[in-house]
Design a protein around this nucleic acid. Sequence first.
DNA 1: CTGTATTATTAAAGCGCTTCGATAATTCCT
DNA 2: AGGAATTATCGAAGCGCTTTAATAATACAG
Lengths: 364, 364
Amino acid sequence: MPNSMRPAKPLERRPTIKDVARQAGLSLSTVSLVMNQSGYVSDETRIRVLDVVKELGYHPSRVARGLASKTSGNIGFILSDDHFSSAEPFYTRIFLGSEFEARNHNFYILLTTVSGKNGSVGTIPRFLLEGNVDGVLIAGKISVKLVEYIERLGLPLVLIDYELPGKRFSSVLIDNRKGAHLAVQHLAHLGHNRIAFIAGDIRHPSIAERLKAYQETLQELGLPLDERLVVTSEPDTRIENGNAAAITLFTQGGDPTAVFAANDAMAIGCMQYAKKRGLRIPEDLAIVGFDDIESATHVEPPLTTVRVFKEEMGTLAMQRMVSAVKSKTKTIVNTYVPVELIVRSSTQKHQPTIPQSSYEGGVR
Amino acid sequence: MPNSMRPAKPLERRPTIKDVARQAGLSLSTVSLVMNQSGYVSDETRIRVLDVVKELGYHPSRVARGLASKTSGNIGFILSDDHFSSAEPFYTRIFLGSEFEARNHNFYILLTTVSGKNGSVGTIPRFLLEGNVDGVLIAGKISVKLVEYIERLGLPLVLIDYELPGKRFSSVLIDNRKGAHLAVQHLAHLGHNRIAFIAGDIRHPSIAERLKAYQETLQELGLPLDERLVVTSEPDTRIENGNAAAITLFTQGGDPTAVFAANDAMAIGCMQYAKKRGLRIPEDLAIVGFDDIESATHVEPPLTTVRVFKEEMGTLAMQRMVSAVKSKTKTIVNTYVPVELIVRSSTQKHQPTIPQSSYEGGVR
DNA sequence: CTGTATTATTAAAGCGCTTCGATAATTCCT
DNA sequence: AGGAATTATCGAAGCGCTTTAATAATACAG
């Protein structure tokens, strides 16, 4: 009664490739070739081997094949800590997408966070020092020095929601321009002509893009570009900063009737401030966020926002990674993940959602 | 200019233990002993080795030491998929706590989810088949068969928010009884005497405990135990089920003035229903949740709830795991993580928070 | 001083696999 | 038919480390 689902009762030794070889009357090499589907093996022996494998419940030791083949079967996932440990589930969702996809390809993810602050290399993730990963995924903005370090290690690298000016790495990016465009357009169509923009961490490429697209869209629509309507001085994009940015905004005298926030957290912070100030949402102030995090649906009123497909970003990045690891060719692909505007009550009372399409940057 | 922070420019071969040995004029074994701080090594040679190690920027290959020492340096983390992929960030937070602690002890976590549904073993996590973990953490309710499988592998096992009747495993548990007690008591003190309880997934030990403590507390306070006030038929504990449970509750004629929900998600669902029904919260219906998830602060009104220290649970579990892996002795420790009642506007208008203390079950 | 413990170092085996080069068996050409 | 090319199998080396048992050096007894 062969049953690979169950180890022997008191649990003997795990079967090794040697056991399989002996049992099948073949050499180690042949068994190895079968397991790796490489080289020449006759159908007859292949079947014989696979039978024995099943019978014995054999599974190659990851660690042994790692040593022999100089691959670990792991992908490193680096996150800047300020992004991750913050309650903000944005990058967590991306991670989950990657994690799920990794499993489809028989990889595991080794997760680590690095301090996002300083420009130095900082502490180097142990999996890099120990040679314990076959490639690295980076989500969000991290030190250029660290990126360069990884580059020098010769490991495949895929960036998520981050780009390095002047560097050529595959990236999975949010279509920030379109998202910002949709948001501003939506507000304009509702009749707003004094639309503010609040953000933090303006040095993050994604945030910068949103600002730029905000400005461009205003121009495009023939609306005034009033700098009193823009607050980007906050160091971070969390709820508190949204609140703080709102305070600044309303002291600058721009007299906004609508706010486009760089992300949902800031939008929620802004919303809190608006309420405290006695403003009705959306009547006195319409608010649009970006990301579509869980909380966006639970705040009162529910937040109109630009939905980002976070899990999909993680998935796509991992797919790139897997093909990079397997192919060894260094093609660079920028993938732009679509966004869609989700209209909720923070901008108008009743609404449909408007899905958008995606496109890929392709090799360039 | 030795600098372990930086690999050679075009990147040569990683230095191996052999390189260190040669450079130091010692044998491999000696270097190994130094690296592992075991055996007898004179101070003089130890220093010499460490100097060379630093000079060469040597870091032992995780994969090689894995093969030689039959340890992987990884801890498996198993989650039932319905818990994890649900937007509910509860287990995610626990995972983060474990992840962080793992790093402190130079372990990595291999995360995987298993289908929580059937009672069979289901697909066995690959890291078990490949012998790629030194221990396993399980969060939430998973198949007993799988637990037994792991047990037979002889791997250290720590359960989080789960207990197995009749099995002896170390667990990290929520102090559900106290939490439920605090919640019900709070409502009673506010004058409520028709306090309902809604839950799903009643077969989960944590949920069952909350129900039991709910009942006991009512009795203790001399309040009626009306079964029309209890709805536990929902299969799951997500928002929709909270909504559904509320519907059932209000058709049962128990006429509740307050609801204690088994978790925040269900509380939020219940809240949604109450609003739709035109009930004012907390005036017409007071609501208390459990867990204190992020959304609890964002719903309108903010939800009174029992705070659970999720990261801490993950941390504690990992600490247990590390000591189990290192010591090889099979002490069983049940750790109860404290809870505290967080009073917000879903039960009364103005409030303080009431912190509670923790205790440990200890070896038994 | 000689014998026993203790401390220090090392050679060698081996962990379980991949992979290369060699060899053997077949098939394909012309 | 004879040799080249292709297909099939295997032996052996080796991946980078740990660990054991042996040996060497030193300290400690009596």
